[in-house]
Every structure is written in structure tokens, then in C-alpha cells.
């Protein structure tokens, strides 16, 4: 995959490196902004309440 991307980037090695860097940063941004916030509730670190739903059920 990576060699394939490298071959299809335009320009000489310097330009390719620059574009690759921008691509990497874009991927990291997308991960931090969208993917990880979505994945985080699937992990146990967010469960700090005692039976959230039960408590809200008794709320008028």
C-alpha cells in the first residue's frame, strides 16, 4: 500500500515527502477529531456513574 502511494505521488522526492507528510497529518487529524471520539465510548473509561439510566428513570 505505502509503496503504491509513494509511486503515485507527483514530483520529485522532496515534493513527495512533503505531500506524504500532509497526508499523514490529515489522517491524524481525522482520527483525533472523528474516529477516536467515536471509538472512545466503546471503552470502559467513561463509566463513572452508578446506573445512569436507572437514575434518570426516577427523574420526573
Amino acid at each position: 500500500m505505502y509503496p503504491w502511494i509513494w509511486r503515485h505521488l507527483p514530483g520529485n522526492a522532496w515534493v513527495k515527502s512533503l505531500i506524504a507528510l500532509v497526508l499523514v497529518l490529515a489522517v491524524v487529524y481525522a482520527l483525533f477529531q472523528y474516529v477516536f471520539p467515536w471509538a472512545e465510548p466503546l471503552l470502559p473509561f467513561n463509566d463513572v456513574t452508578v446506573d445512569n439510566n436507572g437514575m434518570q428513570a426516577v427523574t420526573p
Binding site: 472512545e40 473509561f45 467513561n46 463513572v48 456513574t49 437514575m55 434518570q56 426516577v58 427523574t59 420526573p60
Partner: peptide
Amino acid sequence: GHYEGSAPLGGTGNFAVAGHRRTH
């Protein structure tokens, strides 16, 4: 976070608060 439905701050009853132990 203050549990909705628990007592208000300083009120009679139980003022219940939750918080992250790790992350955030």
C-alpha cells in the same frame, strides 16, 4: 456531572456528583 434528579447543592437529600477518574 451532577446527577439529574438528585438533591440540589446544599439542599436536603443527596447532592450526587460523578467525575472521570481517568482520561478527560
